[in-house]
């Protein structure tokens, strides 16, 4: 079987599992099953809420990775772009505390997206214009973001307020699923919409067709007049913007403040989610939710007062799951063929 056929089979299994999980969650939260502690830890509303909360930055990070990598640019720097976005959001928010809350939050979101975009553009410039190895360029982005945010971080500044949940009429009334999915703050909705948009964009629009062609076979794209590097610049910048949004989410919706190095490896985990999802938006979203779930589990186990296992070991869970996933699935997925390679128009004979 060809890799993409294997992938289709995997995806079906994944969806079946996901549906089974939702069904279980509904059962646990509406019936007497919910009285068992361990079932509540595994499937309670709080676990589901936390899963989504932890998954959103991973989803956005993975979408950022897909945007870049589908056009042939490896983006190991998501972590740095996210951190830069988070820091930018924080600075923007603390400086606009006296504005009306919504205006201030939206403005800060835009700043986060913009700074992320600049980091993406920088990565594209390094890798395309200056032909830097793309993995090293990504590392530069990470170190740069960590250094600048630490240097400029004003530890006394406080961001006031964050995005509040918006309940969607009717949908939010559905038991279990309603409060988990349809009573969330703005950026969560935005992230989920983005997944669908990216899927449609990649597979059903001219932009997506060209992006994929550029990432798979740049010369073929070039010979039909598609400007390969312009697409790579554009997509990497877009990817940076989405990663910036992920950072904005952390500060403006999830936490409300900035801490040094607050991305804590989320950029890298979202890369793993992207690989796990075979560079497809919905696949990557599924993987992100899985990773989010391991983080939720960590949280729930601590809340449930599990003392036999030290908290350090529970905290390792997301990282260990990432390693297992990367080990088990790489080789069975297929990355865009032209990834990581510089493309030159002239003299390619």
């Amino acid at each position: 079987m060809r890799p993409h056929r294997v992938w289709k089979a995997t995806a079906i299994v994944g969806w079946v599992l996901a549906l089974a999980l939702v069904a279980l969650a509904i059962l646990v939260n509406t019936t007497a099953l919910g009285e068992r502690t361990w079932l509540r830890v595994l499937f309670g509303v709080s676990a589901l809420n936390f899963t989504l909360r932890a998954a959103i930055p991973l989803i956005l990070g993975a979408m950022s990775g897909i945007l870049c990598e589908r056009s042939g640019i490896i983006n190991i720097g998501i972590e740095g772009m996210m951190l830069a976005g988070a820091f930018a959001a924080f600075v923007a928010k603390t400086n606009t505390n006296d504005w009306p809350l919504t205006t201030s939050l939206l403005f800060s979101t835009l700043v986060a997206v913009g700074i992320g975009g600049i980091m993406g553009l920088l990565h594209a410039t390094f890798s395309i214009r200056f032909r830097m190895d793309q993995i090293i360029s990504g590392t530069v982005i990470i170190i740069l973001a960590a250094g600048i945010s630490a240097y400029l971080f004003d530890r006394d500044a406080v961001a006031e307020g964050k995005f509040a949940p918006i309940a969607i009429p009717l949908l939010s009334q559905i038991p279990v699923i309603g409060p988990v999915l349809f009573a969330k703050p703005l950026l969560t909705y935005l992230a989920l919409i983005l997944v669908a948009l990216l899927h449609v964009g990649l597979f059903y629009t001219r932009w997506g067709l060209r992006t994929r062609a550029v990432g798979e076979h740049p010369r073929a794209a070039d010979t039909v007049g598609i400007p390969v590097n312009r697409y790579r610049y554009m997509n990497t910048t877009l990817g940076g913007m989405v990663a910036g949004l992920a950072g904005g989410y952390l500060v403006l919706e999830a936490v409300g403040q900035f801490q040094e190095g607050m991305t804590a490896g989320r950029g890298f985990i979202s890369l793993a989610a992207m690989i796990f999802g075979n560079w497809n938006p919905f696949g990557a979203m599924g993987a992100s939710v899985l990773f989010g779930y391991t983080q939720a589990l960590q949280n729930e186990l601590l809340l449930a007062g599990v003392k036999t296992v030290p908290r350090h070991f529970i905290s390792m869970l997301p990282y260990l799951v990432t390693i297992v996933v990367v080990s088990g699935f790489v080789g069975r997925v297929r990355p865009p063929a032209a990834e990581g390679k510089v493309y030159e128009t002239e003299g390619g004979e």
């Binding site: 190991i76 350090h312 260990l320 990367v326």
Partner: peptide
């Protein structure tokens, strides 16, 4: 043995090591 890219694995192991050492 599995083709896992060392970049992701080593980064994850950094976090694991920090937690293990902390413990």
């Amino acid at each position: 043995y599995t083709g896992a890219h060392e970049v992701i694995v080593t980064i994850m192991l950094n976090y694991v090591a920090a937690l293990l050492a902390g413990w």
